[in-house]
């Protein structure tokens, strides 16, 4: 019975929810306060476990917004964005709060549904051969200059 009620609620929520970007949510926070929202973006950084729930942050390229969700909903997320990887792209259906009463006035979204739209992937950060050659040459120059400076300091100290 509880499962049916939950599915019904979720259906109503998804019908009522409209997709919003972070820019829209931050520009008119009072207008969208406490209403169902669809928000899409890349999961960045870390997933912070808090008991039966988790916090994670989703960036749509403009801003990142904190998402509070039950742990089981976030279990689908496999990759989070960092220097060497792009995080999973997710769609969050949940309630947007301009100043969440449960979380000390933070602006956040309490997720009711999380859908992984695209899996994250490794980002290529190629190593430049030109920089390697330049570094080797510069290392030689710095060693030479360092030796000259050392000798001059030695003479000065005497």
């Amino acid at each position: 019975m509880r499962k049916i009620i939950f599915i019904l609620l979720l259906t109503v929520l998804s019908l009522a929810a409209q997709e919003r970007s972070s820019g829209e949510l931050l520009a008119l926070p009072r207008e969208y306060d406490n209403i169902p929202t669809l928000y899409r973006g890349e999961v960045i950084g870390d997933i912070l476990a808090r008991g039966e729930n988790v916090w994670f942050n989703v960036s749509d390229g403009e801003n990142a917004i904190g998402i509070f969700a039950p742990r089981r909903l976030a279990a689908e997320i496999q990759t989070t964005g960092k220097y060497l990887q792009r995080g999973d792209t997710v769609e969050i259906l949940g309630k947007f709060s301009r100043a969440c009463a449960e979380h000390g006035g933070e602006l956040d979204i309490h997720a009711a549904q999380i859908k992984v739209l695209a899996r994250g992937y490794a980002l290529a950060r190629p190593v430049s051969k030109f920089k390697i050659i330049l570094s080797v040459l510069l290392a030689g120059v710095v060693l030479f200059l360092g030796r000259l400076d050392w000798q001059r300091q030695g003479r000065f100290m005497k």
Binding site: K131, L138, L148
Partner: peptide
């Protein structure tokens, strides 16, 4: 963190900065 590209950037920048510093020390002793 095995960030090889970043490692090279810091190696190059460190050498450039130290090299410039040493050159100034020698020229302006």
């Amino acid at each position: 963190f095995r960030e090889w590209s970043a490692l090279l950037d810091y190696l190059l920048s460190g050498l450039l900065t130290s090299g410039l510093g040493l050159a100034l020390r020698l020229l302006c002793f």
